[in-house]
């Protein structure tokens, strides 16, 4: 299966995202922000970093990149899409996921290994986890505070669309301790922490993040 990994100007984590795809048995395909071309991939990862320097708002300019218009069209037809960190911000700006991410409540850039609770294991990206499992992956962001209005939060909670929640002290002021959410069809997932940095105990705190990429490979094989 072919998994596209987008590179924008200022993207940092495309190499680790592609490595995670290969660890899970997929083929990583580089996608370029300026191309109207998804190269026949089966899924797309929008990786972390500081696309377009985070100018205006995080993700606000990347959202209008030619490749993102293709991603939005493909996601609406059911293609699995994963946004990590800056990628999550971009998916929110692109309205593939509801809400927005703002400056951390204590203003500090947070860089640490973070425990997350898996709240939903029925998405295209989380089927390998047990519901309620706790995983340890890096979190590294300055604007990770998840915000949405009350009705949107109620909808997310009511439909089980909170995928990951922070365990312990809330690191960034996210409403309801939300670390990651999914679209109504469970195909698009966004989260602030970095599963692609935790796929091998040699290079990360754990290999807990690998399950997201294995889940994707499973979902496309079974589809």
């Amino acid at each position: 299966m072919r998994v596209g990994v987008i590179t924008f100007p200022g993207t940092l984590d495309d190499v680790d995202a592609a490595r995670a795809v290969r660890y899970a048995g997929g083929e990583a395909v580089s996608l370029w922000h300026a191309d109207h071309d998804l190269k026949n991939v089966d899924a797309v990862i929008v990786p972390g970093g500081f696309s377009y320097g985070d100018y205006l708002r995080c993700g606000a300019i990347a959202r209008f990149a030619p490749v993102m218009q293709e991603v939005v069209d493909a996601a609406k037809k059911g293609m699995p899409v994963l946004g990590i960190c800056n990628g999550f911000q971009i998916l929110c700006e692109a309205h593939l996921l509801p809400g927005a991410l703002i400056r951390n409540h204590k203003l500090h850039f947070v860089c640490r290994d973070q425990w997350l609770k898996v709240e939903n294991n029925e998405t295209a990206w989380t089927s390998r986890y047990d519901k309620g499992a706790e995983i340890l992956v890096p979190l590294k962001s300055g604007e990770g505070g998840y915000q949405a209005d009350r009705s949107t939060l109620d909808e997310l909670e009511g439909e089980g669309r909170v995928v990951f929640r922070y365990v312990g002290e809330n690191p960034n002021g996210s409403r309801n301790d939300i670390a990651g959410i999914t679209s109504a069809n469970g195909r698009v997932v966004g989260l602030m922490p970095h599963p692609e940095h935790a796929i091998d105990a040699l290079t990360g705190p754990t290999d807990d993040g690998l399950g997201m990429f294995l889940s994707l490979v499973d979902s496309v094989v079974t589809a």
């Binding site: 703002i102 400056r103 951390n104 204590k106 203003l107 915000q147 209005d149 002021g173």
Partner: peptide, 13 residues
């Protein structure tokens, strides 16, 4: 401007 109900950590600082 940030909406009134949205936390504004920069303004608070």
């Amino acid at each position: 401007m940030p909406k009134p109900e949205i936390l504004d950590p920069q303004g608070q600082a």
